[in-house]
Design a protein around this nucleic acid. Structure first.
Lengths: 343, 343
DNA sequence: TTGAAAGCGCTAACAA
DNA sequence: TTGTTAGCGCTTTCAA
């Protein structure tokens, strides 16, 4: 029996011979419903194949929806985060929706705004290019958890990897292998603006600090690129046209894949140029790739972010800033560079 | 000036000294608004930082939101589809939201239902395990475009790759290289149920047909696996324990990566076992991987799906079934198998 | 061209 | 325990 119009709470009430309020109580598992009424209502719901309109519920309270803003779907590290988030949501009655941003800057703000306009009960966002003030205004209206952002607001929670520590692991590893001419390939200046709290900003800062501390100020070289593998490939190619360093520390694994591709186009092997990435995405451990990388437990981060968000949705207001410990996965490709004179 | 409560259309109307209806007309660009009124209203909107609540709008009409159901975010082919979909939505005023499913069967249905409950104006779904009847019931309430599904309903549009042709390319390629013992690694029997319209069902069917047509009925071997790289790795390992074929045709590239991993754990090289995948994800062309694969233009598919959906949202009712031509990307790793006796 | 008013489907006081 | 009722913030006739 197909009806043209989907059943409403009114239809269910009529079918069950009760009031709308009664139906509402049943679907919300609220107090004060007799077993017999519950039974009749549930029967009517089943008979009419009734499903509450989320929009209508949202107007009065919650939408039972959590939103996550995602820059660049192509990055497999984000897939891990989503997997963790989805797992944490199992059985909670909340639905996760993803708003893809896919470009720098404005886009992230747009996507987050779109989520807010859609009345989600909470938002997880991945370190968008936006001021703390903007985020605090947002957080005043809807619970917010920021992923990867290193500032500490009282208005929102954060879940971050310890990027300073991760970078230390990378740099010490490279130093131990004898590298001096280490290039850092990272995102745009806008993304790494000091104080932006962006992970790439911290990694860059760590790179600079360690190079200086090692007396390698002269060797510092920062190359900028976009947010996907292809732009990393292109910018690495441009770098190699000018100079072939002995090691490249790349801002994340997706970009590192582009670097590896460029190196192979240049017929440079892992013995000649060591590459280290960040995130330890699945492909990094692939035998033919063997990319040394910093692991930072994406699933755990996604899971934690959702848990924190649910707590906020349920009323917590004191901020929590959670940090996960990174570890370096050293893989075969990284070899000691041959002795060489300083440039 | 932060206000505790977000501005409503009422607030804007009061600020501008007009009626709610007038404001509504302005934000919808409706007819019959004088320039002066438009100006005053826009000023008020800006002053109050007003943003219409999507939930409230959805109750009366549309939510300006398109939803896409995505099984398994980890698959990079889906990322391409999203990229295409996002591109097609630029400047339309519609927002894309993704509902991740991440498991077989029930989950896809749940995710699609969640989108429908959230009053999206249209749904793109990726060949979920669901009957045409179920889809037709869904399509009666909200415009639907199915990706990768080979059935032809009048109730919804479809965008598919020509999987029969793609499979033909694969099998002929392998035959030409002299392969006979070709194993097909594919998804569960549930997924490949004949008549399910699932791409994997078609690919399996094509595999069987070509093997028989080549007089290799004896050599047919179908191995089942889950939906991610890891399960493919495990199931390939189990296969290799029993038998080492000369070629493996894997249902898609993500699974193929698991197969390649298993082969390398077994110390089998590309000369010994040829692997062919499907989708031609970016990593397949990576030099150290060189996975032969069927390319099927994911971006174009996502873009087309969204265009079709927008047409339906705007009123089209005649169904359109769009098919993209696949092409085989032959990469180095696939070599002729050594001559061998039939098992 | 503008505004008044009804109502979309639901929840939450409050009464009965 | 149950039902009545007043909205939530919008859009949309329909009059003015």
């Amino acid at each position: 029996m197909t009806q043209a119009r989907a059943a409403t709470i009114e239809d269910v009430a009529r079918e069950a011979g009760v009031s709308r309020a009664a139906v509402s109580k049943v679907i919300r598992n609220a107090y004060g419903v007799s077993p017999s009424m519950r039974e009749r209502v549930n029967a009517a719901i089943a008979a009419l194949d009734y499903r509450p309109r989320v929009a209508a519920r949202a107007m009065r309270g919650s939408s039972f929806t959590l939103g996550i803003e995602l820059p660049h779907i192509g990055n497999p590290f984000f897939a891990k985060i989503i997997a963790g988030a989805t797992a944490a949501l199992q059985g909670t009655g909340y639905q996760l929706i993803i708003a893809p941003a896919d470009v720098d800057g404005e886009e992230g703000v747009r996507a987050i705004g779109a989520l807010a306009d859609r009345q989600v009960d909470g938002i997880v966002a991945i370190s968008p290019l936006v001021s703390p003030e903007w985020l605090e205004r947002l957080a005043a209206r809807v619970p917010v958890v920021m992923l990867g952002r290193h500032d500490r607001s009282t208005a929102y929670d954060t879940v971050t990897g310890d990027d300073l520590e991760g970078t230390r692991l990378v740099m010490e590893h490279l130093f131990e292998l004898g590298h001096r001419r280490i290039v850092h390939l990272t995102r745009s200046e806008e993304v790494t603006r000091p104080g932006s709290g962006n992970p790439h900003a911290i990694r860059l800062e760590g790179y600079l600090t360690h190079m200086r501390a090692a007396g390698l100020e002269e060797c510092i070289r920062v190359v900028r690129t976009g947010l996907d593998e292809e732009s990393a490939r292109l910018d690495t190619l441009a770098l190699l046209d000018e100079e072939v360093p002995t090691a490249i520390f790349v801002g994340n694994d997706e970009l590192a894949m582009g670097t590896l591709r460029a190196l192979s186009e240049y017929h440079l092997t892992a013995e000649q140029v060591s590459v280290v990435g960040y995130d330890d995405v699945d492909i990094a451990s692939y035998p033919a790739i063997s990319l040394t990388s910093v692991n930072q437990a994406g699933e755990a981060m996604g899971e934690r972010a959702v848990r924190l968000l649910l707590e906020r949705v349920q009323g917590r207001t004191e901020p929590i800033h959670f940090s996960v410990e990174p570890s370096l996965k050293v893989r075969g490709s990284t070899r000691a560079a041959p002795a060489e004179p300083t440039p």
